[in-house]
Design a binder for these strands. Structure first.
Lengths: 142, 142
DNA sequence: CCTTTCCCTGACGCCGACGTCAAGGCTTAC
DNA sequence: GTAAGCCTTGACGTCGGCGTCAGGGAAAGG
């Protein structure tokens, strides 16, 4: 099959396949007129790449899986190098999720603090000295 | 103070401050010779920006906080627009963390599946027909 | 024959937040 | 005087994964 069909069957675009080829990830045979031509095994490789990409793996990280498939294994993760990538990714994910949870907690605290400060200010308003700094305050009651 | 000093006091670089200025976030006065000059209030604005950046806010999201401070509020999050940014960020963080947890679980499953497949293959090896597809298999015992 | 639709290569665009280099001016210290 | 160390603007580089356009061949259908 040609590039357009393969791309369609994998839910991607010809441009993407050419890009993968330029990275040495998905080389293509050529017909006499120079058109790229692919077979079912290429579709399998491509789907492996796409699945990992959807998981957030970057292209280089998919390489071991692709090479593993090309080496004849029925699964891209049958090789130790692929398992290593899995493990590294798990560590990265755990670290990232941990950081994001910390950030989430901190932002949540800031919001709570700012809201209670606003409420205290609103409660005691129209009492003290002069007018406050004028924001877009006084709009909708959030 | 001049740009180098302000940058140092905020733990960043002159280039960064010029960038913020180009984005209209941190305008600077000028001395007669054309040098940018800043005061303590600029340091406060800058620290507000940096804090939010550390939380993963992008520059545009820090703008309401900066404008709030410039409007005279003692805190950058004293204005409704800032609170809205907090809330949006919390939603984004929750969504992102949720997605990452799903991915983490799926990758974890893939790893477990691949490892058990490998173990089953290792256990029954040297028994069946021909040689297996040859990876870097046979290296260290992962 | 003509049009449409595919294909090719090459090259620039994009996004965000700057880093880095070039070429030059001001100030300060020795 | 001159070297060091600050400052100025302008412009290009970075990273990843493509999108998009330009300019031109090739195949398929009427």
């Amino acid at each position: 099959m040609r590039i357009g069909e393969l791309a369609a069957r994998a839910g991607t675009t010809p441009r993407t396949l050419r890009y993968y080829e330029s990275r040495g990830l998905l080389p293509a045979r050529r017909t006499t007129n120079g058109y790229r031509t692919y077979d079912e095994s290429d579709l399998k490789l491509l789907r492996q790449i796409r699945t990992l990409q959807d998981f957030g793996f970057d292209l280089e990280e998919t390489r071991p899986f692709v090479e593993c498939l090309r080496a004849g294994h029925p699964e891209g993760d049958a090789c130790p190098a692929s398992l290593q990538v899995y493990r590294r990714k798990l560590d990265e994910l755990d670290a990232l999720i941990g950081e994001l949870r910390v950030v989430r907690a901190e932002v949540g605290e800031q919001l709570a603090r700012a809201e209670s400060a606003r409420d205290r200010l609103a409660a005691g308003a129209a009492v003290p000295g002069g007018p406050e700094p004028e924001c877009e305050l006084g709009g909708e009651p959030w």
